[in-house]
Every structure is written in C-alpha cells, then in structure tokens.
Design a protein around this nucleic acid. Structure first.
Length: 675
DNA sequence: TTAGGGTTAG
C-alpha cells in the first residue's frame, strides 16, 4: 500500500487542528476540504475555532454562515472569537440571534468573560445574574473581572456569596481570592484571617499557583517567615513568578542582602525581577542603589527591557534625590525604549520634575496629559506648595473640582502647605474652614501657617480647640514657629511635649537649643546638649550631595575623602574671607559659645552642605544650574524661591539641605548668615 | 467539540 493511499479518519482532524498552530491549522483546513470532511460537525467546529483563535475572525464567521445545522458549540465558538478580537457588538448580536433555549452555561459564561475583560463590570454582572445556571468557571470569570479591575472588596463579597449559595471553589477561584486579599492586607487584616480560615476548613490540594498566591499574601501581611517557608517547600516546583514574589517581599521589607542574593541566584530573571529590586530600593530610600541597578538593567540585560513600572520607580528615585540631570537622562531612556506611559507614569514624572526644582516642567507634563486623576492634581499641588506658589495651588484645587474630581485629605494638606509657604494666611484659613472634617494633619498645617505668620497665640488657641489629641506634627510646627520668632516659653512647651513622644529625635533638641542661643541663654543651651548626651540622642549623620555630569558626589561632615578635597577647602577659605570683607556675620552654631568659628569647625568638622556647595562652585560653569541636597523646601529664613534664581544672571546654584533651600550666586547665599 | 484559569513589579 502506498503512503498516498492512506486516508486519515475524519475524527483525527479536530485533534490535529486543535494541537496545531495557525500555519498547520490552515494546512489541515485544505486537507479536510480535499477529503470532503467539512460536513463533519467536529471537524467544522475545530476549523472555526482555529480561525476564531488565530484570526482572521471573518473566516470563522464565513464557515458559521455557511452552516445550515449549527449546534450550540458552533454558536459559542463564534461568540468567543468575536470577544477575542474585540468585537463586542458582533458578539452581542450573535448572542441575541440565538434562541433562549439554545444558550447553555458556556454561552452565558463567554458573555460574562467578554464584558469582564473589557472592564464593563456592570454588564458582566447583569449577564452573570441572569444566567439560568452557573458553573465554577462562570463564578471565576466574574470574580476575576472584579479582581483585575482592582475591586478586591467586591471580589471577596462575591466569593462569600458563592460559598453561601453552596458552590465549591476550585484552585483558580482560590488564586483569584487570595490575590485579592493581598491587596487588602493593609486595609483589612480581618478579611485575610477569615479567608485563610476558610481555606484551612476545606481539605484542599493546592497547586503551585495557589501556593505562590499564598506566599505573596503572607509576605504582604508582614509574615516573611511564613512566606519563606512556602517558598522553600515548593522546592523545584518554582517558576519565575514564585521567585519574584519572594524577592519583592524581601525588597519591600528593606532586607536587600537576602533579596539581592535570591535575585542573583534565580534561574531566569525577567523584567518583574528587576522591577522588584529597583522598586524595593526606591521605596526604602535607597534612591542611588535604585538608579545603579537600573543602569545595570539597561546595559546588561537583553531579555528584560524596562517598562512603565521600572520607570515609575526610577522617576521616583530621581525625584527623591532631586537629581534633574539623572531625571532627564531617565526620560531619554524612556523615549529610546518607546515606553508608553499611563496616568500613573505621568504622575511620577510630575513628581520627579517638581522635586527636582523644575515646577515649570511638572506643569507642562500635567497640561499635556489627556486624562488626569486625583493623584495628578495632588502631586502638582504639593509641588506648587514646595515652590511657594500658593495662589496657583488654590487655583488648581478649584480646577480639579470643575473637572469633577473631589479633593481628598492629601489635596487639602497640599493647598494648606502652599498657603503656608506663600504667607497666604487669609486664603489658607478659608480653605481650612471649607474642609468638612479636618484631620490632625490639617490642623498641623494651620499651626505651621499661623506660626510662620507670627500668630502664635492664635496657633495655641487652635491647638486647645482641637477635637483630637495633638500629635508630634502639631508641636513640631509650634517649635519651629517659636524658633523663627524667638519665643522661648512656647518653644519650651512644644519641646517638652515632643521630648515625651519622640525622645530620640535630635532635631527637636537642636531647635530648642537654637531658641535659647538666640535669647543669649547659654546655660540652657548647655543643658539641652547635656540632656542629649545623657539620653544618648545621636545627631543623624546628614550627608549632602552634588549632582555633576550624571555623577553623585557625596559629602559628610568634615569630609576629606573627595578627590578635589584640597580645592574645596581652599575655596571655602576664600568664600569666608570674601564674606567677612562684605560684613556678613558667620555661623550661629550652638556647639560652644566661647570659641571662635574656626575652632568650632575644627571640633565638629565643616558642615557637609558647605563642602557640597564649594564643590558645586568649583565645577559649575557660568550660567549653569547645579542641584545640591535632599529636601526641597523653601528656606524658612530667607524665603528663597526658584523665581529668584531666574533673576540671577551670573553663576547660579540652587542649594537644598537640612530642609533649607538656598540660592547662591558667586558663592553668596541670599540667606545672609548661612556661612 | 464550545467557556476560564492564575500567582509576581508601581
């Protein structure tokens, strides 16, 4: 017998077509046409399924239209095909062409899945509720719809309904439910407990999907050990998702040595692995490490391309550093990699630009966005606040209301801060009165605002009228105000409260000591420093930095490790001579009152920010803008703002450090007594 | 024969 004489049985083709890809599927189609197998129900359905899955869907429809004896599977395949190729209208038409009695549970589930995947949850739920009968797949389709649309509460509610109506969840159900619980772990730990109890009740064989979801849930509830136990028990049955879940758990918790170890060991890293590490660094204040790893990712990893999630972490890190050159470089990397941004991506850009001192660029990004959310408004309002643009902050809040977005507590904190920094007391008070239920942070903003304006009695009155217990933010603002306005008794009151709640915060001791120093009460200054020593309060080792040509140069107090250290110290000496000649009074340091400035610096070392500024002066060209420091605030003493910088025509440097923001031109700060 | 499936990064 010749090979050509063998005629495969028609029943083979549905299996062959199902297993084949598109190209082979089309070849089998031509076979069955030649062999005359098309009238066979199963063969026909398989070919239709192939075109519905791989396209073009109109060929599936052609076969469908040519049928004169369609069964329910044929209808279901064509509906599913239309959903797959995004034709909701056609899917809907076919569904309604079917007779009511023709539809089965699969037909209904296909409609539920289609609507759920296109995020039309209302319609999905309508179909789900109208189903004559439901299978576990129908429940999963609806549950997954809620979960994927970020509605974990609704997912859990439906899941409880599922259990109460006597339906048995399968492994898929558990994966959906457990992962929804993970996103509720912070807000509602009781839900997590009840779901875990429910899972224990059923004698259930979990597969590795369920186990990975459980691992993630335990990690997000803060049970790293429990998560690690699941990870270890999975042995070789781990995939990259399991590894990533474990790495991100350690990275989120700031345990970088273990996270990095797993990251290095994992068999195959992907974009999520890199993102887990980078976002872990970025969220735990390790901005430089985040950027370093990002550079490694783009230079070494061919398979793991950065995506929007990567960029959100990188922009955030650049923002926290205030490193505009790095930020601009990150934006160019974004463009080179053709990464499209969603609203949250744009929001992170607004954050980055405003934290890097460029509120203009932040505003441009905001204006260019097609759609904005609450976070977009809040980020720009906070940026405007930090830059002292009070009126613009208030205006933007009005605009968001016009756009149908209601302000939340963060919006009000932003606007109140904006008013406070811009000295808009009256406007700020109006905003405060408009808040329905102000919380303790809103009160803190008001205390700050009144305090800066010198209305300390009013501030005290407001504290006494508060419906809740004042927290450290309230007394911190009061202490700050007492320091600005040299009010010893109020400073003592605020400091006493703060020493109780945060006895190891060195900043409070320093402020109180400064208040005493400004009143010439040197004995009290010494007392404060004694208390600090007795309480073993460590002054936080601050470091300052300068971003120059994409490199970060770090300095700590008395630093002599920098390669240009000699030049820096020489320049510092020259600046001081220059300042003295111009009659500036130097340093208000309270270390000791009976020694000269040079001696004090000998004792404690030159402040890190002075070293950073001198380095910036050394390397900057005329007209360049160099950014130094870590916190973007308006200098409380000189109220320097970005606007002043644009007025300076010669060498311009913006300096941010120790919560201050100073403008320098040829070595002179607009805040006279800085040096 | 036809439906889903699903875990990790912001």
């Amino acid at each position: 017998m010749q090979y050509n004489d063998i005629k495969p049985d028609a029943s083979l083709y549905p299996i062959l077509i199902k297993c084949a890809g598109k190209a082979c599927g089309m070849l089998f189609h031509s076979h069955v046409l030649k062999l005359g197998y098309v009238p066979d129900h199963y063969v026909r359905n398989a070919i239709m399924g192939m075109y519905a899955k791989y396209g073009p869907v109109h060929l599936a429809r052609k076969l469908f239209d040519e049928m004169c004896d369609r069964n329910v599977a044929d209808w279901n395949v064509i509906i599913s095909g239309y959903w797959k190729w995004g034709s909701e209208e056609e899917a809907n038409k076919i569904f309604h062409m079917m007779g009511k009695s023709q539809r089965n549970v699969i037909t209904w589930t296909t409609m539920v899945t289609g609507y759920a995947k296109s995020r039309n949850l209302k319609t999905a739920r309508m179909y789900f509720d109208n189903m004559p009968e439901r299978s576990v797949v129908s429940w999963n389709a609806m549950l997954s719809g809620y979960a994927q649309s970020g509605e974990p509460q609704e997912t859990i509610r439906l899941f409880n309904h599922m259990l109460n109506s006597g339906n048995e969840p399968d492994q898929t159900t558990w994966v959906i439910v457990i992962s929804s619980c993970s996103s509720l772990a912070d807000d509602d730990p009781s839900v997590v407990d009840s779901i875990l109890r429910e899972l224990e009740k059923v004698n259930f064989q979990s597969n590795y999907f369920v186990k990975t979801a459980l691992l993630d849930l335990q990690a997000k509830c803060g049970n790293l050990e429990a998560a690690r136990k699941i990870f270890d028990q999975l042995g070789v049955c781990k995939n990259s998702v399991t590894w990533n879940a474990m790495i991100s758990a350690y990275a989120r918790a700031g345990d970088f040595s273990v996270a990095r170890d797993l990251f290095n060991k994992m068999p195959e890293r992907n974009t999520v692995s890199w993102n887990s590490m980078i976002s872990g660094y970025a969220q735990n204040g390790e901005s430089l490490m985040a950027i370093k790893l990002f550079k490694e990712m783009i230079s070494s990893s061919k398979d793991s391309k950065p995506n929007e999630v990567t960029m959100v972490s990188v922009f955030s890190a650049c923002g926290h550093l205030g490193a505009l050159d790095l930020g601009n470089w990150a934006v160019s990397t974004l463009n080179e990699n053709h990464i499209k941004l969603s609203i949250s991506g744009y929001n992170s850009l607004i954050f980055m630009y405003s934290r890097c001192g460029s509120i203009e660029d932040a505003t441009i990004i905001f204006q260019e966005m097609e759609t904005r959310d609450l976070v977009s408004y809040n980020t720009l309002i906070s940026g405007l606040a930090a830059h002292g643009h009070g009126k613009e902050g208030i205006k933007l809040m009005s605009k968001m209301k016009e756009d149908g977005i209601e302000p939340d507590r963060i919006t009000y904190i932003g606007v109140l801060t904006a008013c406070s920094h811009a000295g808009l007391l009256e406007e700020g008070q109006k905003v405060f009165q408009s808040i329905e239920v102000p919380d303790v942070d809103h009160y803190a903003c008001m205390i700050d605002m009144l305090g800066r304006a010198g209305k300390l009695e009013e501030a005290m009155k407001l504290i006494r009228s508060m419906p809740m217990e004042p927290h450290e933010g309230i007394y911190g603002s009061l202490l700050n105000a007492a320091c600005i306005h040299k009010r010893v008794e109020l400073g003592e009151l605020a400091a006493a409260k703060l020493f109780k709640v945060e006895p190891h915060n060195s900043g409070n001791y320093v402020l109180l000591s400064n208040i005493y120093a400004s009143a010439g009460r040197w004995k009290d200054v010494d007392k404060v420093w004694d208390t600090m020593r007795k309480q073993e309060v460590q002054k936080t080792t601050a470091w300052s930095w300068v971003e120059h040509k994409g490199e970060i140069h770090k300095f700590v107090v008395g630093d002599r490790s920098h390669e240009r250290s000699d030049d820096i110290y020489k320049l510092l000496a020259n600046v001081k001579v220059k300042l003295r000649r111009e009659g500036y009074v130097v340093d208000k340091s309270c270390v000791r009152r009976d020694v000269e400035e040079e001696e004090k610096e000998e004792m404690v070392g030159i402040h890190s920010e002075k070293l950073a500024i001198c380095f910036a002066l050394l390397v900057s060209d005329i007209g360049s803008v160099i950014r130094v420091g870590k916190n973007l605030r308006i200098c409380p003493d000189c109220h320097a703002s970005i606007k002043m910088i644009s007025k300076l025509e010669r060498r311009k440097i913006i300096v941010r450090d120790n919560n201050r923001f100073h403008c320098f031109s040829d070595g002179l700060c607009s805040c006279k007594d800085y040096w």
